[in-house]
């Protein structure tokens, strides 16, 4: 019965047993989901965004619901990179998982220092968040200027032997330009999209719902934007792409693969269905069998545009 299909993907040397990953900031450090699934089934776990020193984040409310989406202004609350290495990483590695550390910094030097620290650990790759819209000094500034993007990518890459994934901000005029700078800077892989900056208003109090006034939009509402950007970027660069933004079903996963993503990450979808990541691993296999596709890579970029 069970015809074997090949779901493994190769992200420029980083090999995953399947292309289903978690999106940073939505999966904690993995443990939080263990009541709902066997997390070792997943292609990779991307952990909560880390900073050099622990961070308390923004004031609450930090979450606002919007039509088919949510806004968040967590402000990168995290226990710091050292805590992650001491308390979280070895647990995930003992389960045989592929672990990707997501990093955010205030300066290029900070990013480089984190890269050096993580380079000596068992984590499998680093995802560099140059797009978090929440933190005033960092985030947007790095991810929106193509020269800065080139500089930070190449400098971090110089401090790292592990694969470097650069995560793009959608809050830019031309995502293709930024993607090209990342490729030129020597990144091994791209991930996109991070959240779109938005706002929600309470007309009774005449105040924003988020204490931070603005936040990052995620969830099904952003899927069309994410698909468009993955498609444009995949037509522009030759490095692999991890696509994300609003995935909540196997159909969504296939759409991202068709427009050129080599792997996908699920973020907000975890909040609606905390078992979604492992369900999608199973459903992808079923989809491939049902459609007589022996290797998942056959789907990548197979959209036929007009």
């Amino acid at each position: 019965m069970s015809k074997k299909v090949d779901t493994s993907v190769n992200l420029n040397g980083l090999i995953l047993k399947n292309p289903i990953m978690t999106a940073s900031g939505t999966f904690g450090f993995g443990k939080e989901y263990e009541d709902f699934m066997d997390i070792s089934k997943l292609g990779a776990v991307v952990v909560k965004g880390l900073t050099l020193k622990p961070k308390k984040g923004n004031k609450t409310p930090r979450i606002a619901e919007t039509p088919s989406g949510i806004l968040n202004s967590i402000g990168l609350e995290n226990p710091g990179v050292e805590h992650f290495i001491k308390e979280e990483l070895s647990y995930l590695k003992r389960k045989g998982m592929t672990v990707i550390a997501n990093i955010a910094g205030n300066t290029i030097e900070e990013y480089c220092e984190m890269a050096r620290i993580l380079n000596d650990t068992e984590c499998d790759a680093i995802e560099m968040n140059i797009s978090c819209p929440n933190v005033k000094k960092g985030g947007v500034a790095f991810g929106t200027d193509k020269d800065v993007v080139y500089k930070i990518t190449s400098e971090v890459k110089n401090n790292l032997d592990k694969p470097l994934i650069v995560k793009l901000s959608p809050n830019v005029t031309d995502i293709k330009e930024i993607a090209k700078s990342v490729e030129k800077g020597g990144a091994d892989c791209l991930s996109l999209i991070n959240t779109l900056i938005g706002m929600a208003v309470d007309i009774k109090t005449r105040r924003p719902i988020l204490k931070n006034n603005i936040g990052g939009l995620s969830g099904p509402a952003i899927k069309p934007v994410a698909l468009r950007m993955v498609w444009q970027v995949s037509n522009t660069v030759n490095i692999p792409i991890i696509g994300m933004g609003g995935i909540t079903s196997i159909e969504d996963v296939i759409e991202f693969l068709l427009v050129g993503a080599n792997a996908v990450a699920i973020g907000t979808g975890n909040f609606i269905n905390p078992a979604i990541n492992s369900e999608l691993v199973d459903k992808l296999e079923e989809y491939l069998i049902d459609n007589n596709i022996s290797n998942v890579n056959e789907l990548v970029g197979k959209i036929e545009p007009y």
């Binding site: 900031g25 939505t26 999966f27 904690g28 939080e32 989901y33 909560k48 984040g57 609450t60 930090r62 979450i63 949510i70 968040n72 967590i74 609350e77 995290n78 907000t268 975890n270 909040f271 905390p274």
Partner: peptide, 10 residues
């Protein structure tokens, strides 16, 4: 957001 300790919304 999540209700299970993963998003740090609360």
């Amino acid at each position: 957001g999540c209700g299970i300790g993963a998003c740090l919304g609360c």
